[in-house]
Nucleic acid binder design. Structure first.
Lengths: 332, 332
DNA sequence: CCACATTTTGCAACCGGTTGCAAAATGTCA
DNA sequence: TGACATTTTGCAACCGGTTGCAAAATGTGG
C-alpha cells in the first residue's frame, strides 16, 4: 500500500539507513545523498511511518486528551486550545471521552497500548485519583482544571475553587444580600465540592446571613434552568452563586420565564466568564477563569514532562477575578 | 519501560508466538497454555503494544477526526457523539483541528504518517476537495456534514442544504412576510452557499416578495449578534432565515437589545435545533438537523469502508423538518 | 603524494509484535 | 497398541523503521 523506506532506498540506489537519516534531523547525511534520496522519495510519494519509528525511538508524539466534559460549551474552547497548542508543538491528541459507563482502568490500559507519550486529563469533575492512575502506570500526566493541592501527587493546573467560592460569598455579602445560596454543579465533581466548601466557609463568618445550597445535575444550561425553576418554587435566596456560567445562564432563563428579573428580584454571580456572559441581554456578573492560561500552562508542563518524566509534581494555580456586570444589585 | 511480549514469554517459559496468540482472538491456543501465559502477563502487568502489532496487521484502529468547527457549540455534541461511537467500536479518534492557517496538505500527510485506518471529516464548511485529498491518498474517508452530491466522489453524510434554504423560504412566504432575508454563515462555507442558493431560488418564484441577504463572519453567537445589529441599522427585512441556530440566538440577542421584539417586529427561523432553541425565553422556530443520525450513519459507513475500502462512494442525505416555536408570526 | 583526522555510508541487530510453515503433541478409532 | 487426523507449538522471517559500529570516502596539512 504505502511506500516504504526500502522502496525509496532501492530507487535511490542507497542503503536503508541513508534514507532513514535523510528524514531524521540531526543525522549525518551529505548534501549529495540528501538530494538523491529526496528525489526518489518525492517521485514515490514517500512519507515515513511515524508509528514504525516510534518503535525504536520510544516516542509516538501521541498525547491522550481525556475528558468527560462534553456538555459544557466552554470545553469546546478548551478542546480548540488544546488541539491547536499540541499540534503547534508537533504532538497529536488522541481524544478519549470518558463517559459514566466507561471504566477508567480501561482508558489507562487503552492509552498505554497506544504508547502515548503523555496524558492530559482535562476535567474539573474527575477525582485526583484518576490522573494518579496514569502516573502509577508510568505515563506523564497533567491534570488540567484539576483540584488544587498543596501536596500534589501529579501535576495539576487550574484555579483555586475553594477561593472562588469564598470570593463569590464575599461579593454577595458586600452587596448586602441577607439570604444567599450556592447552586452548585454535579455534587460529585471536585470543583463543585471545593466551590461549595469555600462559599460556606466564608459565610460561616457571617452568622446573620442565611445561606442555602443545592446542586444541579450537570454543568449544562438545562440543568441550571431546571434547578432554578425548582428553587423559585419555594422561597428562593436573594442571590445565587452558580457553579458555572452555563448554570447561571440557564438560571437566568428560568428567572425570566417566571416573570422575575435579575438583579431586581434575584441576583446571580457565575464562574468562567464564557463568551455569552458579556452579551448585553445576559450581562452576567461572573468570576473569570483564565482558560487560555490554564491550557497554555498545561501544555508547557506536558512538554517539560516529556523532557524529564521524573519531574517533581507541581501545582499551578491561576488567580480568578470578578467581572462586574449587571446581575448583582449595587453595593449596599 | 513497558513490559514486552518477550518478557512474558520468558517468564511463562513459552515461545513468543504463544504469547502473541493468547492475545489475538481467533488464534489457536490450548487452555493450558492460555492460563500459563495469562498468569505471567498478569504478574508482569503486560498489555500488548497496539502500534507494534499494527505494523504487521496493517490496522491501527486509529481514525482521524478532522474538523474546523471549534466555535459552534453544536459541534461539542458532534464530538461527543463521534468519540463515543468510535470508542464503542474499538476505534480511537485522532483529533485534528484544521485552523485557517494549517495547510490541508499537511493534515493529509500527518494522518498518513500515523497510518490511520480512516478519516472522518466533520465539517459543514470545508470544500469537498478536502475529503477527496484523503481518498486520493488511499485513505478511507467519510465527509460528515458535507455537501450533498448526486455524483459523489467520496462518501458524504449530511442534509440537503439547498432544500433547507428552500424550506425556510417557503415557510417565510407562507407566513405572509413581504420582505425576507437570509443571514448566512461564513460566505466561503459550502453549507452557507447551498442554503443561500435554495433560499433565493425559492424566492425567485415570488417576485412580489422582496429578498435580501447578508453573511455573518462565522457560525458563532457573536457573529450573528454583530450581523443583526448591523442589519437593524438600515431598514431590515421583516423576517430572517439564519444559517444556524447560533446565528439566530445571537440575532435574537441583538433584537432584544435594540428594544425590538421577536416575532412582533422581526421574525426568525434558524437551523439545527440545538438544545437552547427550546428554552422558553428563546423558543426559536428552526429547522431540525438530525445530528445524531448523521453521526451514527457516518460511523456505520466508516465501518463499512474499513471492511471494503473499494466501496463505491455514496451520499446519504437525511431530511430536515421545521420545528415550530415562537419566532415567526402566525400564518397569514 | 602520503599520513592522518573527519565525515559519510552500509551492515546488521534491534524495536514489539504477527504469521506461514513444519514439527511436536494430542486425540480418535480399530 | 499402532496408524492416522487434528490441534498446538516453536522457529524464523517479516512489518517499517532506527542506530552503534566499523569500513569507506573525503578533507587537511606537510
Amino acid at each position: 500500500m504505502a511506500v516504504t523506506l526500502k522502496e525509496v532506498a532501492e530507487r535511490a540506489g542507497v542503503s536503508r539507513s541513508a534514507v532513514s537519516r535523510t528524514f531524521t534531523d540531526g543525522a549525518s547525511v551529505s548534501d549529495k545523498m540528501r538530494r538523491k534520496v529526496e528525489k526518489a522519495a518525492k517521485e514515490l510519494g514517500y512519507s515515513p511511518n511515524a508509528l514504525a519509528s516510534s518503535l525504536t525511538t520510544g516516542r509516538t508524539k501521541l498525547i491522550g486528551l481525556v475528558s468527560n466534559n462534553f456538555h459544557n460549551p466552554i470545553f469546546l474552547e478548551v478542546f480548540d486550545l488544546f488541539t491547536r497548542g499540541l499540534q503547534d508543538r508537533g504532538l497529536r491528541p488522541l481524544l478519549v471521552n470518558l463517559t459514566d459507563e466507561t471504566d477508567p482502568e480501561n482508558s489507562v490500559r487503552m492509552l498505554r497500548q497506544y504508547s502515548v507519550d503523555g496524558v492530559v486529563v482535562a476535567s474539573s469533575t474527575l477525582s485526583p485519583g484518576f490522573a494518579k492512575a496514569f502516573r502509577d502506570a508510568g505515563v506523564p500526566v497533567v491534570h488540567s482544571f484539576g483540584r488544587a493541592s498543596s501536596a500534589p501527587q501529579v501535576h495539576v493546573v487550574g484555579i483555586d475553587n475553594v477561593e472562588c467560592g469564598r470570593m463569590a460569598a464575599r461579593e454577595l455579602v458586600a452587596r448586602g444580600y441577607q439570604h444567599v445560596g450556592i447552586m452548585g454543579g454535579p455534587e460529585a465533581a471536585t470543583s463543585t465540592q471545593d466551590r461549595f466548601t469555600g462559599f460556606m466557609s466564608e459565610l460561616a463568618a457571617h452568622p446573620d446571613i442565611k445561606a442555602s445550597y443545592s446542586f444541579a445535575d450537570a454543568y449544562s444550561f438545562d440543568a441550571g434552568r431546571r434547578e432554578m425553576l425548582r428553587l423559585l418554587k419555594n422561597s428562593p435566596a436573594q442571590a445565587y452563586f452558580c457553579g458555572d456560567d452555563v448554570l447561571s445562564i440557564g438560571a437566568l432563563s428560568a428567572i425570566d420565564d417566571s416573570g422575575l428579573s435579575c438583579p431586581d428580584d434575584i441576583g446571580l454571580i457565575g464562574l468562567n466568564d464564557m463568551e455569552m456572559a458579556q452579551w448585553e441581554n445576559i450581562n452576567l456578573t461572573t468570576i473569570h477563569q483564565p482558560i487560555r492560561q490554564i491550557v497554555t500552562s498545561t501544555i508547557e508542563l506536558m512538554m517539560a514532562m516529556l523532557d524529564d518524566p521524573e519531574r517533581y509534581p507541581e501545582t499551578r494555580i491561576f488567580s480568578c477575578s470578578i467581572v462586574e456586570r449587571g446581575t448583582l444589585k449595587a453595593e449596599a
